[in-house]
Computed example of a mutant assay.
Amino acid sequence: MSDNTKFRIALITGGSRGIGRDTVLRLAKRGVRSIFTYHANRAEADKVSALAAEAGAPAIALQLDTGKAASFDDFILRVRAALTEMGAARFDYLVNNAGTSSGASFTNGTEADLDAQFAVHFKGVFLLSQKLLPLINDGGRIVNISSGLARFAYPGRAVYGPMKAAVEALTRYMALELGPRRIAVNVVAPGAIETDFSGGVVRDNPEVNKAIAGYTALGRVGLPEDVGPVIAGLLSDDFGWINAQRIEVAGGIHI
C-alpha cells in the first residue's frame, strides 16, 4: 500500500490525548509511524512522540487547530516536510479524531455555538480530508470519529450530537467517492469515555460515571484503550473489506 514498502504511516488529528493518543501508541506497537496533531499542549505531544518511539515507531507532532480551515494549506506543507523526514512521499491512513465539546441545548444554543462546532466537527473534517487526498496512497484507509450521541439523545448535546451525525453521513459519501481509489472510509462512534473531554466530567464526576455505567450493558464507562485498538484494527489489512460502516464502541450503552 505505502510508497515505502518497509513501513506504513498514519496521520491522526488530536493525537496528544485521549483516544487519539491511544491510537498513536497502538499503531506504533504495530510498526505504523504517525504524524499527529495537537492543539496547544506541546509538552504532552512530545510525551506521546517519546512513547511511540519506545513502542516501536517514530511519531511526529504538528500543531493544528482543525477549526481554522485557513491554516490547512500551511499544514499540508508541514505534513509534506514530516513525510520527507520519515523517508516517504505519502501516507496510508487518516484518522479524523480532533474534536471539541459543547453543552449547548436546543433552547439555549447560539449561532456562535453552531459555528464553533461546525468548524471543527464537519467543515474541518471535510476540508482537511479533501486537502490531504493527494498525499494519501491509493488503497489507504480513513476513519472518522463520531459519538454515541449521534444515535441517542442527552440533555445539553443538541449541537454536538447532530454535528457528529453529519460526520456519519459524510463518511458514506467519502466512501462512495473514494472507492475508485480503493480507499475505505469508516466511522467509529465511542460512547462516554474517561478522558478530559467535556472538562473531564465522565472521568472526574463519580455520579455521572456511575449513571452512565448503569445505562451500559457491560456495566462501566469506556476508556481510551477500549477505542484505540478498534481504530487501529480498522486501519489494518485484516478489516480491508469493511467500508462505509458505523461502528459504535460503547459497551452496549442504551441498547
Rank of each mutant, 00 (worst) to 15 (best):
K6I: 10
T13S: 14
L25Q: 04
R26D: 11
S34M: 04
Y38L: 00
H39M: 04
H39G: 01
H39F: 08
N41G: 03
A43Y: 13
E44Y: 05
D46V: 07
A61S: 15
L62A: 08
D65N: 14
F72E: 04
L77M: 11
A82Y: 05
L83P: 14
T84E: 14
F91W: 09
D92R: 05
Y93V: 03
N96F: 04
N97P: 14
Q117C: 13
Q117R: 13
F126G: 10
F126E: 15
L128V: 12
Q130W: 10
Q130T: 13
L135W: 00
N137G: 11
G140L: 05
R141I: 02
I142A: 02
V143L: 08
G148I: 05
A150G: 10
P162Y: 01
L178G: 01
I193A: 04
T195E: 07
T195A: 13
T195I: 12
S198E: 15
S198T: 14
G200V: 04
D204K: 15
E207C: 05
N209Q: 14
N209A: 13
Y215M: 11
Y215E: 07
Y215A: 03
L218D: 04
G222H: 01
G228L: 04
P229M: 05
F239C: 13
R246W: 08
R246L: 08
I247M: 11
G251M: 03
